[in-house]
Design a binder for these strands. Structure first.
Lengths: 117, 117
DNA sequence: TATACATATGAACAAATAAACATATGTTTA
DNA sequence: TAAACATATGTTTATTTGTTCATATGTATA
């Protein structure tokens, strides 16, 4: 590469960088996005989410099903609740949890496709 | 709830748990799925991925763009490579990275939709 | 209203990991 | 082939976070 080409190359890269920077969403949004994926990024939580793919479950069900302590399940459900990934309803002494919406199912399914490649 | 109802309730829960257990993918797959999302679950990596949404970029571009050290970018790209989220090609001294496939874009987009609600 | 059952919460500890710094590898060109 | 540039890798450190144990809250029933 001659000197002229070199300069042109660098200028072109600068342009690209500038353009990308303009299109990039605010840091705050990307931070939230990372936080969202972080919630999916733990095997216990993924197991919990997946177990609710077809049906609602109460805390005790999940604990037995996945062989986890009640405390651990409850802690993780708290995180899933605060990220709006699950919703819940009380029925007597039990509280039934289920996936919050189709987004959650879609995100998991997309991930599955990538993993199963 | 009477004693009979109580027994029926417990039996019904057991059935549900058993059914879910049968449908649940192997632990290994769910573990891989969590590992995949974990990669998306870091704000630096998400920023890097997002910056490549429209165009390929070399390491230096990304470092300047996101105001990160070359080392940090390189470390994160290694993780993105090994998860098959990005691909790369060499051109002279530079190495250009880009999103590996449409899955990656789809997963990010789905997450964005959830975040922007 | 006392007891049992279901779930939630708080605190402490151990494991995982992102960033920084130093250095190594690989590529081009003078 | 030596120097400059671009990227990769190894190591240490500070921070984050999942689990456990103990305990609290909330609900139903005898």
């Amino acid at each position: 590469m001659g000197e002229t080409e070199e300069r042109e190359f660098l200028a072109a890269r600068e342009d690209v960088v500038k353009k990308v920077l303009e299109q990039q969403p605010d840091d705050e949004i990307l931070y939230d996005l990372a936080e969202l994926f972080k919630v999916f990024g733990d095997s216990t939580r993924i197991k919990i989410l997946y177990s609710m793919f077809e049906t609602e479950l109460c805390v005790n069900d999940i604990a037995k099903l996945l062989n986890l302590s009640q405390s651990s399940v409850s802690h993780q459900l708290r995180i899933l609740k605060s990220s709006k990934l699950v919703k819940f309803r009380r029925e007597g002494k039990s509280i039934f949890y289920s996936l919050d919406d189709e987004h959650v199912r879609a995100i998991i399914s997309m991930g599955m496709e990538h993993v199963e490649e």
